[in-house]
Structures are given as C-alpha cells and as structure tokens.
Amino acid sequence: MPKILVVAEFVGGSLDETAQELAGAARMLAATASQDYSVSAVVLGEGLSEASAGLALWFDEVFVFDDASYAVPDAEVYGAAVAPLVEREQPRLVLIPHTNNGMDLAPWLAIRGERTMVTDCLSLEWSGESIEAVRMMYSSKVQARVTVDPSAKGFLITVRPGAYSVPDGAPGPSGSVIAESSAAGAAPRRRFVRTVTPGVEDVDITQADLLVSIGRGIEEEENLEIVEKLAVALGAEVSCSRPVADKKWLPKTRQVGTSGATVKPKMYLAIGISGSFQHLGGLKGSPFIAAINSDARAPIFEVAQVGIVGDLFDVVPVLTEKLEALNS
C-alpha cells in the first residue's frame, strides 16, 4: 500500500502541534485518494516513549529515532536518519511542517529523496496523480494555486503551521511503533555548538495586556515617536514586526512572530503591519485585533476584528489626541 509519511517535530520535550495538524492533512489526503494509502510518521529526539505512543493514536506506523544524538534538532543529523528511512519505505508523499527546522531539513531531503517539492502550502488536494496546492506569494498578498506533478518517487511538501486544524479526537486503533536506529554514516560536517535563548530587556512584551505594534509602514525611525505617544495614551507597550527589528529601530525582543516573541495580549493594535503568517504566528490567545493600514488588501484585515484603511500618519495622531483627552 502506498504511504504518506509525516515528519513529526518533537521540540522542548513535547510533540509540536503541527504533528497532529499534519496527521489531519495526511488522513484527508488518504481518504480522498484514488487508491488506498496508509499514513505513517517519523519522530526524532530523546525520551520519546510518550510522544511515540501519542503519535500511534494518529498514525498506522510510527518510526522512532530515540537517542541522545537526536536530543537537539539538527537538519544534517535528522536528514542522515530520515533519508535512508524514506529510501526504504518509499512514501509517495512526505509531509513536513513549514517551521524553521522544517525549512532547514526539507529542501535537502527533497533532493536526496528525489521528490518534487513545494513549500509553505495552505491546502492540498489530489488532482489525478498530481496534487493541487494553494500557497502565498508576494508578502502574503497573493495566493497561488499550483499543480505539483510527482517525480518518479513522489512528492515532498511543507505545510504552513495552522493551515490544517488539529482533528477532533484521534481516529482510533493504535498504530505500530517501530524503533529505528541509523547506521553510523559519514562524520557530520555540521556540529551543534549551543542553543541561544533571547534575553528579555526592560520590557517583556510577552506579559503585556495591551500592545501597539508597528510595522514597515512607519517608514523612518524618527516616526516611531507618534506610536510611542499612542502607546502611552493607551497604557500599552510597543512591539513590532520583523522589518522594524531588522532595521534595529526596536530591539529584537520587541518583535512579535515565529522568529520573535509569542505574545498573548488582550488587545493588539497593528499599525502599518501587513500581517505575514510569520508575524501572526506569534499572536496567541485570541486577542481583540485592530489594524490600521493603507492597503485595504493587507492580510492583517483578514484576522483583525476592526480595521481602518488609511494613512497611519493621519490616523495615529488623531487617535492619540482623543485618548489623551479622555485620560485628562
């Protein structure tokens, strides 16, 4: 029976939520295929007995690489284990979460595994022997529907975290857990040195109830002042999206997103932020989101409850004045 293989991420001592999301995606694809598919997972790490039992509720087979050498995720070490597994099991489709670690591993594995690759997919469906995928382009402003033809061996696809929701309840009978070990291969050419936890500075935006967040639309560093004034009037902290931290206008610790901080405020006022998925990935706990952006089509308006389409340089000072008047 042909297989769909999901690469499950085990990070910080537990399974990443994407493992279940991809279980849902894999089961959906198996159920809608023109032939029967089995769904398998592979997981790497150290101390995986609980995680592999959990995966067995979702997958027919779970291949487990449980060893101290996998304790720290590393694309080269993980790739050296997964590539031979893919060669042995010959899954028609390999699904990998489009996380930072997934992005590190997937392109290399696609070449080694000789599979057609497409990344960061929002949805997948069969189109005959091919797969039709939807993904985003141009700063998440445009969606693209692409047809992916399999290579002789099949596909390798990365899926955006959150694109598929975690299914309600595991499907049922436990799958089999298969202990794997990789033969010692060539000496690694990439070596782990250390993991770095970004320090928290004066302000910890992860603890803030109200956040005024600023993006590329602020244009110049001097303009930050108008946003800071608004934050004071609201009693909020100032956070930002990636372009502002990249330019060092605000410290990296103020950056919200998958490559920055995960925040859970009550209100998130996004100003001049288009709303890439990397940015929105750092926003948890269903806050009230209000957005001010000059581009009516900015993706931020799809997740915000309230939006103002307009020039932030007009709107923000007026909003600040009104709040200051209320405060006094």
Binding site: E132, A144, R145, T147, R297
Partner: peptide, 20 residues
C-alpha cells in the same frame, strides 16, 4: 518543471475585519 502555476488570486478584501 514539475510545479506549474494555475492561477494567482487575491482573497476577499477585509474578510474578517469590520472596516470603519
């Protein structure tokens, strides 16, 4: 190339937000 573009599209404007 095995990945072919069928179409580009823009999702509905302000799907979620109430635009003031």
């Amino acid at each position: 190339s095995r990945v072919r573009l069928n179409e580009l599209f823009i999702s509905a404007e302000g799907e979620g937000a109430e635009i003031l």
